[in-house]
Simulated scan of single mutants.
Amino acid sequence: MNGSPDQRSSWRVRASWALRKYLFVVVAGAAGLGIALPLVTSTSESYRAQTVVVVRERAIDPVVVPSYASAVFASDAMRLRAASAAGSPGGAVAADRLRLVPTGADTWSVEARAQDPLAAAALADAVAEAFVEELNRAGGDVGTFSIAARAGVPTTSSSTGPPGWAAAAVGVAAGAVLGLLLVAVVVGATRPVLRARDVTSAAGQRLIGVVTLPADRGGRPSDPADAYGLAAVSAVLLPLVDASVVLVSRRQLTAQRRQLIILLARAMAPVRDVFVSGSPDLAAEATRAMAGAGADAAGTPRPGLELVDGVAPLETLEVPQWPLPLVLVIRYGEPSAALRRLAADSVGDEMLGVVMVDQRRSGVARRPRKRSPASPATA
């Protein structure tokens, strides 16, 4: 495979994320075509009858006879006579109902299909009779043609279309391929931000960390231990002593941004005097979460840290304009253009970097935590 190991790793990360996010597109495509293709290609059961036509006397080169017979069977005169025999005068007969099959050097089989066995036999005989008449119009200069065996009444039916299971299998495979192609086009067009290199390329900022937010616990405070990647973000914020940090995101990510703020406040509460600025509801929820983490325990004075909830870039203008570090909060897999706009619209004297959040779905099993010698929240 061409490309550097880093490029191959990048494609693996993108493919894994795309399949997780857009798996429903692939499944929908496979299911849709898997159901539709058998319906489109299915044909009703029909009976096939055969009438044999032969050359009694040949007056021309034997090599020419097959071409002559095929030309006569495909002529307009035969088309009209076949339509009349099928009960559609002046119309046409479906191509799959009539067929001329060479069965020997001087013999042909006129095959006819119909949903009724008697109708199939009658149609084969009628078309064969018309075929013989058209062949003999050239007179003795070509030869003499006649019916060697009339059609018997068929006793078994068959279908001209592919088996239903085969059509379904082809439909599922084709639908899955189309779904994958659509996902590839979407991923290529949006260029999702998934790695530190993507963050730097889109916004010129560093990636602080990727935090997997716990699923909703029915109003109970989330446990920071369940937020994978939170320790890395806490480690960046802890050195900021008696400072304020504004967390900014797009409005669509308000709930996740506020959940991140509460998790950070609860994780750093044992070692920092954390204050959350924002809506009254957010401040009250953060206070309850920090109380549960032991933030009210008596002890020596601790350095302060204010986490400011910046709803949207322009709304950070309401924050007092002393130097305030900014943290951009984006969704894991955010389009590069969206991150670029967010970085361009955000104001602040110092940009700490970007935090990506990924929401864990309810019911996902918790992964075992790896113990480390020192946690950023307790260092």
Results as ranks from 00 to 15, higher is better:
residue 266 R to V: 03
residue 205 Q to H: 07
residue 253 L to M: 14
residue 210 V to P: 02
residue 244 S to R: 15
residue 285 E to H: 08
residue 211 V to W: 02
residue 226 D to C: 09
residue 193 V to F: 10
residue 270 P to L: 00
residue 183 V to I: 15
residue 292 G to W: 02
residue 270 P to Y: 04
residue 290 M to Q: 07
residue 299 G to A: 02
residue 220 R to A: 13
residue 217 R to V: 14
residue 254 T to R: 13
residue 285 E to L: 05
residue 197 R to H: 09
residue 200 T to G: 11
residue 243 A to T: 03
residue 205 Q to I: 02
residue 198 D to P: 07
residue 294 G to R: 04
residue 292 G to Y: 01
residue 214 P to C: 03
residue 229 G to P: 15
residue 225 A to I: 08
residue 259 Q to R: 13
residue 273 D to T: 10
residue 193 V to W: 13
residue 246 V to A: 15
residue 297 A to L: 04
residue 227 A to T: 04
residue 241 V to R: 12
residue 205 Q to S: 03
residue 235 A to I: 10
residue 194 L to R: 12
residue 199 V to T: 13
residue 248 V to P: 05
residue 185 V to I: 15
residue 246 V to Y: 13
residue 239 P to I: 03
residue 225 A to D: 12
residue 296 D to E: 11
residue 285 E to W: 00
residue 238 L to H: 12
residue 200 T to K: 01
residue 292 G to K: 05
residue 267 A to N: 03
residue 221 P to M: 04
residue 288 R to I: 04
residue 233 V to K: 01
residue 278 G to D: 14
residue 274 V to Y: 07
residue 292 G to I: 04
residue 241 V to M: 06
residue 306 E to M: 11
residue 259 Q to S: 08
residue 264 L to P: 01
residue 219 G to Q: 02
residue 208 I to H: 01
residue 211 V to K: 03
residue 278 G to T: 05
residue 214 P to W: 00
residue 279 S to L: 15
residue 192 P to C: 15
residue 301 P to W: 05
residue 261 I to T: 12
residue 253 L to W: 12
residue 244 S to E: 12
residue 198 D to I: 10
residue 283 A to G: 07
residue 253 L to C: 06
residue 192 P to K: 14
residue 282 L to F: 14
residue 207 L to Q: 10
residue 242 D to N: 12
residue 252 Q to H: 14
residue 187 V to A: 14
residue 221 P to S: 01
residue 242 D to S: 09
residue 225 A to L: 11
residue 208 I to E: 08
residue 224 P to F: 03
residue 216 D to C: 14
residue 257 R to T: 05
residue 282 L to H: 13
residue 296 D to P: 00
residue 184 A to M: 11
residue 183 V to R: 14
residue 271 V to D: 05
residue 281 D to T: 09
residue 274 V to Q: 03
residue 289 A to C: 03
residue 289 A to R: 05
residue 292 G to T: 00
residue 258 R to F: 05
residue 228 Y to W: 05
residue 188 G to D: 09
residue 202 A to R: 13
residue 227 A to H: 00
residue 251 R to W: 15
residue 302 R to W: 06
residue 248 V to E: 12
residue 291 A to L: 08
residue 205 Q to A: 00
residue 286 A to Y: 05
residue 271 V to F: 05
residue 254 T to L: 09
residue 213 L to M: 09
residue 277 S to R: 14
residue 281 D to I: 10
residue 254 T to S: 15
residue 307 L to W: 04
residue 218 G to A: 08
residue 197 R to V: 09
residue 213 L to Y: 02
residue 228 Y to H: 11
residue 237 L to M: 11
residue 274 V to N: 02
residue 238 L to Y: 01
residue 271 V to C: 05
residue 198 D to F: 09
residue 247 L to D: 04
residue 221 P to V: 02
residue 304 G to W: 12
residue 255 A to H: 10
residue 230 L to V: 07
residue 251 R to D: 15
residue 208 I to G: 04
residue 298 A to H: 02
residue 199 V to R: 11
residue 248 V to K: 11
residue 308 V to L: 12
residue 294 G to K: 00
residue 214 P to H: 02
residue 236 V to M: 10
residue 291 A to I: 06
residue 246 V to H: 12
residue 240 L to C: 11
